[in-house]
Design a protein around this nucleic acid. Structure first.
Length: 451
RNA sequence: GGUCCCAUCGUCUAGUGGCCUAGGACACAGCCCUUUCAAGGCUGCGGCACGGGUUCGAAUCCCGUUGGGACCGCCA
């Protein structure tokens, strides 16, 4: 009754086309990390094997479900780059895809169970009587063989007093009717699986395959919650993470391609993904690693795209990137050469290109005494009248000038850095100067009385 | 409490009995590069939870202990 073969290797080609997996969120909040991770693995498997990815909304909790949350979840999935073949918004041949719209169906099958003596009514509720003395077993694609005695289970409420189905019941009815072939969900559902299996048997339905995914925990190894920081994918977007990077990082939580590759594109992940390579141990969400992955993705994206992603963060910082061309903005970011782990940092690290005001707020021209000021004036004046304005030639010129005066490069580079950026760190300062242009550099140096 | 699951560096992991004096990545430390900070390169730190078996041989198989997690809701 339980298909005990798992699709792998050459068999994949045969079984593929009708593979159907689903992500079934409850619209009681934003799309959080755990949900996104589960959705991602379902999507990855569907796309890898050429099957269908179905989205189903489990809105049977009247008190907490809202349309607003449903919209947010759908948008969150889209932001992550996950698309679905059937769902509440796009429809499909196995709808409706909202449980609140399938009440007749749940009621019908519940009554069948009552009629056949496998369930009983208690007030308005319908309850499944768990058969005694049965060993319920299944072969999880990730966790292997799992079995449990039915005697350890309590009867299962099927229909609540409000007429809505419970999770454990609705999930069985829907997965069957929607012809889901493999249920991929969080490991917290392993304990629920036996009672669902009993329901499949009572209804006379074939069971799908199951693949449970390891949980994602916080740094303290406890279930991820607000205490651990951002938990919804939108918070990551707002902090300046690229969806491809979050995608890449999520894919690495509980799975790896089998070689040493850690940075990959969506397409590469689809090609390499395999449910049978999913690990069993719960993993800790590590911001350091996410930052690294995000930095890697920012580094490999096309300059113009990088600029487009940074745009809103410049605006948020009160700057006016719209006054510049996209090419110019992309050029600014090119100067960063790998600096910055998030788009937010990219914007922050380049604010002085868009506004001298930001520089003035950070540095008032202090720490330069009279004697040094005189020396610097000499250099900056020479620099501003130097025929070439290419960063390389400016650097050569500066080096020669310093050598002639017995000075170190940093003796002139650091004051220039402060005057141009208002910071003690920046990309190569002659590259900054070159990009800013001779006039702007002159304006800033003159403001600080350095020419 | 009952049931189920898990257990390799701080973190993510490779590893399916000999290729492992355990490999990679992040983080951390140091060095190189250098006008600063990154990036890049190199080096280092650091792990098979513990105890029994099985075996010529165990991170890998079995049992137990310990630790962690999940479920046991008319939440999902």
């Amino acid at each position: 009754m339980l298909p005990d073969r798992i699709p792998s290797g050459k068999d994949e080609q045969v079984m593929t086309s009708n593979t159907r997996v689903r992500f079934a969120p409850s619209p009681t909040g934003a799309l959080h990390i755990g949900g996104a991770h589960t959705a991602l693995f379902n999507w990855l498997w569907a796309r890898h094997i050429g099957g269908s990815f179905i989205l189903r909304i489990e809105d049977t909790d009247l008190a907490r479900s809202t349309e607003e949350h449903e919209r947010t979840i759908l948008q969150g999935l889209s932001w992550l780059g996950l698309d679905w073949d059937e769902g509440p918004d796009v429809g499909g041949s196995h709808g409706p895809y909202r449980q609140s719209e399938r009440r007749e169906i749940y009621l019908r099958h519940a009554h069948d169970l009552v009629r056949s003596g496998q369930a009983y009514c208690e007030g308005e509720a319908v309850i499944f009587s768990v058969p005694k003395g049965r060993t319920v077993a299944f072969d999880d694609l990730v966790y292997g063989h799992i079995e449990m005695e039915s005697d350890t289970l309590k009867d299962v409420v099927l229909i609540k007093s409000d007429g809505f189905p419970t999770y454990n019941y609705a999930v069985v009815v829907d997965d069957h009717l929607m012809e889901i072939t493999c249920v991929v969900r969080g490991e917290d559902h392993i304990s629920n699986t036996p009672k669902q299996l009993l329901l499949y048997q009572a209804l006379g339905w074939e069971t799908p395959l199951f693949a449970h995914l390891p949980m994602i925990l916080g740094k303290d190894k406890k279930k991820l919650s607000k205490r651990h920081g951002a938990t919804s994918v939108y918070e990551y977007r707002d902090m300046g993470y690229h969806p491809d990077a979050l995608f890449n990082y999520f894919a690495l939580l509980g799975w790896n391609p089998g070689d040493d590759r850690e940075i990959f594109t969506r397409e590469e992940a689809v090609r390499m993904f395999d449910l049978t390579r999913v690990t069993k141990k719960a993993s800790v969400f590590d911001m350091d690693k996410l930052n690294f992955v995000n930095q890697a993705h920012i580094a490999m994206m096309p300059p113009l795209e990088r600029a487009r992603h940074t745009f809103p963060f410049w605006e948020e910082a009160g700057l006016d990137p719209g006054s510049r061309s996209e090419e110019w903005l992309a050029g600014v970011l090119d100067l960063l050469e790998g600096r910055g782990r998030t788009f937010r940092e990219l914007a922050e690290y380049t604010d002085y290109f868009l506004s001298f005001e930001a520089v003035k707020k950070r540095w008032g021209g202090e720490d330069i005494d009279g004697e040094r000021r005189g020396t610097l004036k000499g250099f900056f004046t020479a620099m501003l009248s130097f025929p070439s304005w290419s960063p390389e030639e400016l650097e050569v010129m500066a080096k020669a000038w310093c050598d002639g005066k017995g000075l170190k490069m940093k003796d002139v580079a650091m004051p220039l850095r402060w005057a141009l950026t208002g910071r003690k760190v920046s990309p190569g300062i002659f590259h900054v100067a070159a990009f800013l242009g001779r006039d702007e550099v002159k304006k800033r140096l003159s403001h600080y009385g350095l020419i």
